[in-house]
Structure formats: C-alpha cells, structure tokens
Amino acid sequence: MSISLPTYTRREMPLLGRRHRLRAIIVTGLRREFKRPAVIVSTLLGVALIVITSIAILLFAGLFLPGQALDLSFFFVPASNQTVLFFITLMASLVGSALIADDLNSMALTLYLSRPITHADYLVAKAAILAPLISLIAVLPLVLTPFVAALLGLFSWTIALQAIGLAVLLGSLFTAFYTSVTLLLSSLTHRKSYAAAGIFAVTFGLTIPAEILSISISNPALLYASPWEDYLAVARAAFGAPGGQIDWPWALVILLAATLVAASLTYLRMKAVEVVAG
C-alpha cells in the first residue's frame, strides 16, 4: 500500500508596488482632511478672500493703487497679499501639525513602518497630503487672478500666462517651505497643539520682529530672517515689481536651504524614533 499526501502550496497574494502603497496613504489622508469642517472652511475662505480682493484691486486699480502699471508687475500685488501668509499658516497648523504628531501620539507610526514602506516613503506620503492643501492657498488664488483678469480683457493672455507660470513657481516654493517646516515641527512632538503653535511662531515670530527691528535699527539685512520677506523679495524680482530692501538671490537661497534642512532633519528625526518599543 502506498499513501501519498497532497503537497500544500500556498497561493501568494499579489502585492502592488510602492507607488500604490503611497497613494493609499495620500488618498486616505486627504479624505480624512477634507471631512474636517475646519479645513473646508479655511480653504474656501482663504481662496475666496484672496481671489476676490485681488480681482477687486485689479478692477479698481486706479483707485487703490494710483500709479501702478498694468503689466506683469501688477501681479506682485496679489502675491504679496498678507491674507496669503495668514491662511497658509492657518492651513499648515490645522492639517500639518497633526500629520506626524498624531501618529507619534497614537503610536500608529508602528503600524505604518511595520508595513513594506520606508521612512522616506512615509514622509513623502505625509508631505503629499499637506502640500496640495497649502498650495490651494499659495498657488490657486495667484493662478486664478491673472486667469480672471485675462478673461475680463484687463490683461493680454501673454502677460496672464506669464503671471500664471510665475505664480505656480512662487507658490510651489512657498508650499515646499511650509510643508517641510510644518512636518519637522510635527515630528518633534506628540502634541499637535505644540506643532501648531510652532508654525505660528515661525511665521509671525520671525516676520514681525524682523520687520520692526529692521526699521528701528535701520538694518534691512534682518529681513532675511523672515520667510515671508524672503518670499516677497523673490516674488518682487519674478514679477519685476520695484522696491524691496533685500536681494532676491539670497532670499531664494535662504528659503531653499531652510526647506532642505527641515526635510533632512525630519528624516533624521523619524529614523531616530523607535518604532518597535519594548
């Protein structure tokens, strides 16, 4: 007699690549954010306020900005609208402050990193959740303004398209800076409120003292300490607007360097977090 037992072969479940895994984190993250009323309200309010004020200024330029040339340099006006700064800070603190801090607090980071993704994948996914939301404030209104202006026949499409291109570049620069700094602050604490306070501190704690001190001691170099002033210097140069007290190349270098340093520090910080704790 001979008995032969069946050989059990286990069917491997096909797994999709890393791009799909990151997309799952990003889509789930964005869905969660867009379910939050605070995010919806601040996005709508921010975009509407900036676009409406820009168009209003555009329509009544002769009244609000006497002597302002209606050429490419006009689009520095919406780019330098301080509402942009306020709503970017608000968006970063509402969404970004919790992105890593909540995972540290709930220890969900363990779940993520025990999956087939790397620390860098995790950070890229988190940045990809935050960046589109910040760019809704930093890019969208600056793109809509020249578009509407061209539709209304106030500017030629050549100038409008130039302005749109520059708006995308400038908005992306500021989005990258805020995304990077926000994720760093979020990775440093388990409490999102601390990270949110840090974002306001970076924005207004640097900008307001830099502006006051640069005037009081007549040293414009202090303005380099403010990310907003650095952004304005670059925007001014890009749109060819007159004025400005600091050199745009240095301002650009400072913004890019701060973005890269913050991203590197976030990565190092995440690598140092003990995912599997005993």
Partner: peptide
Amino acid sequence: GVPVRERIGYMPEHDCLIP
C-alpha cells in the same frame, strides 16, 4: 527591509491604532 516586511504581519504590543 521592504521585501521582508511584505511577508511579515506584525502585531505590536502597545496600543497603536488610529482612533
């Protein structure tokens, strides 16, 4: 790293769920 974790299911000791 990644190919190893594709084949592993890890149940952590601590509470780590997204509430």
